[in-house]
Amino acid sequence: MADLLIGVPRADAGGTDSGAVWLIRGSAELSRLGQIALTALPAGLGQAIIGPADWDLLGLAVSQAGDLNGDGLGDLILAAPGRDVAGRARRARMPGRPG
Rank of each mutant, 00 (worst) to 15 (best):
Q47R: 12
P81H: 10
M1Q: 14
G87Q: 04
D67E: 04
D75S: 06
L38P: 04
A40V: 03
L38W: 10
A37Q: 11
D12T: 09
Q64S: 15
R97L: 13
P42N: 09
A86R: 15
L41R: 08
E29C: 13
P9S: 12
A65E: 09
S27V: 08
P9F: 08
A89Y: 04
A92M: 12
L5W: 04
P95H: 11
A92P: 00
P98M: 07
Q35E: 14
G44A: 02
R90G: 08
L41C: 01
A2P: 15
V21M: 10
L45K: 06
S27N: 07
G70I: 05
T39W: 02
L78T: 02
L78K: 03
G66W: 01
R83I: 03
L30C: 06
A20E: 09
G99L: 15
P95D: 02
P52S: 09
L33K: 10
G14I: 00
S31G: 12
G74S: 12
R25W: 14
E29L: 15
A43I: 03
T16Y: 11
A89N: 14
R93L: 15
P98L: 14
V85Q: 11
G96M: 02
G51I: 00
G14F: 01
L76R: 07
G99P: 05
L60E: 10
S18P: 05
A89T: 13
W22T: 00
A53C: 07
G59C: 01
L68W: 12
A79S: 13
G59K: 03
G34I: 04
D75R: 01
G15H: 03
D75N: 05
L68N: 01
I50Q: 06
A79D: 01
S18Y: 00
L68C: 04
A65L: 11
D84S: 15
G87I: 00
V85S: 10
L73G: 01
L60I: 09
L4R: 05
G82H: 03
G7H: 07
M94F: 14
G66V: 01
V85W: 12
R91F: 15
L41T: 02
G19K: 05
L5Q: 04
I49A: 04
G96Y: 08
R83E: 14
S27H: 11
G44T: 06
L4P: 08
R97P: 09
L78R: 00
L60M: 06
G66L: 10
G87E: 07
L33V: 03
A80S: 13
A61I: 03
D56Q: 07
G34M: 02
P52K: 06
S31K: 12
D54N: 13
G51A: 01
L30V: 10
R90F: 14
S63Y: 09
P98W: 08
N69L: 05
L41S: 07
A28K: 15
L58R: 02
D67F: 13
A11V: 07
L60T: 04
P81R: 07
L58P: 00
G44Y: 05
G34R: 02
M1F: 13
M1W: 13
R10T: 08
A61S: 14
V85R: 06
R88F: 12
D3K: 00
L30R: 11
A11N: 07
R93E: 14
Q47G: 13
A43T: 11
L68V: 11
D3Y: 00
A92S: 15
G74M: 09
S18D: 11
L33T: 05
R10L: 15
V85C: 05
